[in-house]
Design a protein around this nucleic acid. Structure first.
Lengths: 343, 343
DNA sequence: CATATATGCGCAAACGGTTGCGCAAAAACC
DNA sequence: GGTTTTTGCGCAACCGTTTGCGCATATATG
């Protein structure tokens, strides 16, 4: 077992004190050029690296940003991390990753660990359908800055970064109406999700503006499982007012709903138009893809969250002002889908 | 700014020494029950959490496992992390995440950082087409255990965890031959990738066993971009010996190749059968999916790598024995695809 | 009752750095 | 040449926790 190269080791070999070595390494002006060079030379020769742990202890910081997400393998979230890692790495921060698997219990265990880990900040997209937020409040009470990402529960005093999905739903619905669709269905998510409410409001607002009736028969809630989506979509098709377009909660719902349509011998985007949310790579694999998808900018959500977090870290004290940044969603129209429709 | 709750603070309030508090918290038998209870009570009341940083400094460990991957948003890799996080969290380790974006330069910068960060171990899936591995050797020289994941370069003395893709290609080809396919094409990856060689060897081995000719015209290398895949697939279709089946380098290649076939009015899995590698969720979205896909078990690769790493951490000294674990791939036959074919 | 053992706790060093302060010697000033 | 300033470096404390050792006092042993 080789000895670890420390400042003390360098000091001993050079016959100077550890403090001199420390200062020399920082190019402190009060250390003679001669000594500085000698220290640097020996440090390089011995392959010295400063101990981050020791520095952390001194500074009270860890340089770690914890990221707590429901599920990494979901494209939306891995894209968020992608953005987070990008910026954090540039700024010299380490990204620690945790998955809640959408379970509050696990989320709570994670946060307890984070409290003693003393990470410099936490970016969290909370487990869905949760009403308990004590664990989040606990770390906030310990002065650890928190940024809520995408899934933003009410009643927590923290920074927030999200995407304005009411607006996204509004624009998507307006776009469909503008293209002549009259009976636009909404395949919405579970009632417990704020995201569902947002989409509902945007959808209704657009319909009213376009003087289209808001038909309850055209609005379905799904639990996001394939069988339920197929079931609800089939109901829509067979109802008295068959929709000529569907606004789907997300790309996965759109995919399943399309399958249901195909099973009923409806031609996608010809007999029935589709628009969905997220704009995941998934849509480019679909054949045909939805006519359009509302881009939520997960990558930018990640970088924005890190920016806000790092900004609060350098601030003199807590300015107690919490920022809320809502990214503007973007309706991305699929060229491929439009071509199919023209044909 | 509230004072941080430390062992010293508790000691002061209780009129005992810090060492007593430390031992009381560990339920050391030489501390009286009375004192122990008092310490525990006050610690709870003050909401005391031990400083991980201080402990790290003492122990010389960090409790951090660094994971260096090319691209998190690729499903295969996010599934690997999923497995890593799962086991690491259970064992009380923190997962630090880094992306190389398949760039050696960035990988090198990451490894330099890791050396001074003094992580307890590194799991790495190296950037592709790289021949420089000095940065990896450097951390190994610093006694940081390294496990090579999936992409396993030669000449590095480290643990290895992968999936035996020669065997996967062999079994996939055998399966196709067994179903009566005679002209099986191989849409392989770039020559620089070890993964391409593996598939080639397994493919050839199976053909020979099945007494099928190895036709060079049926073997194409693609650079994994959509245009190139479409180009090469079109060449295959229009060649003298048109293949009746295609073994694709991975699911994405299969997807693009299928599009090329459809453009040439070939019915997927009817006129031309498809088998690919990875078995990503992507295949379940495809319509129709490949007949079969070789599952590479990324999740298990992640957990296995962590297991090996943690095992070396508890070992008394370096046993200098490096493990190589090759998971057995599994040919997953798609029910949906088979139904389409029967019809 | 004397010796041996057990009990309960504190001292101080250590982990690897950083930094305020002070002290001596050299250089600059009048 | 005396005073001030600058230069170069070391001392020691500190970050929060752990732990070997030692010192009392209390209890057990013969």
């Amino acid at each position: 077992m080789k000895e670890l190269v420390t400042i003390k080791a360098i000091a001993r070999q050079l016959g100077v004190s550890p403090s001199t070595v420390s200062r020399a390494l920082q190019d402190h002006p009060r250390i003679s050029l001669h000594t500085r060079e000698a220290v640097h030379a020996l440090a390089r020769q011995l392959n010295y690296f400063p101990s981050t742990t020791a520095r952390n202890l001194k500074s009270g910081k860890t340089g770690i940003i914890a990221v707590v997400l429901p599920e990494i393998r979901e494209n939306f979230f891995s894209e968020i991390i992608n953005g987070i890692e990008e910026l954090a790495f540039d700024r010299g921060y380490t990204v620690a990753l945790y998955q809640s698997h959408d379970k509050v219990e696990r989320e709570e265990r994670i946060f307890t660990g984070l409290a003693s880990q003393r990470v410099d900040g936490i970016l969290v997209s909370v487990a869905k359908e949760t009403q308990r937020f004590g664990h989040i409040q606990a770390v906030i009470d310990r002065q650890i800055p928190v940024v809520l990402l995408d899934r933003i529960p009410p009643g927590i005093a923290a920074h927030r970064v999200g995407c304005d999905m009411e607006r996204g739903a509004y624009e998507a619905t307006k776009w469909l109406a503008g293209r002549g669709y009259k009976r636009i269905a909404l395949l919405n998510g579970p009632i417990a999700l704020v995201a569902s409410e947002d989409r509902y409001r945007g959808y209704v607002k657009a319909l009213l503006e376009e003087n289209l009736p808001v038909e309850n028969a055209l609005i379905k809630r799904v639990d996001l499982t394939t069988p339920d989506v197929i079931d609800k979509m089939t109901q829509l098709i067979q109802s008295a007012i068959r929709p000529d377009a569907v606004l789907a909660f997300n790309d996965y719902v759109a995919l399943d709903a399309m399958r249901a349509c195909r099973a009923q011998h409806l031609r996608i985007n010809v007999d029935i138009g589709f628009v969905s949310f997220a704009n995941l790579p998934l849509t480019t694999y679909m054949d045909p893809p939805p006519l359009a998808s509302v881009e939520q900018h997960p990558f930018r959500m990640g970088t924005t969250a890190v920016e806000i977090l790092l900004a609060t870290l350098v601030e003199d004290n807590e300015s107690a002002e919490f920022q809320t940044i809502m990214l503007k969603p973007e309706l991305v129209v699929s060229q491929a889908a439009m071509r199919v429709q023209e044909a």
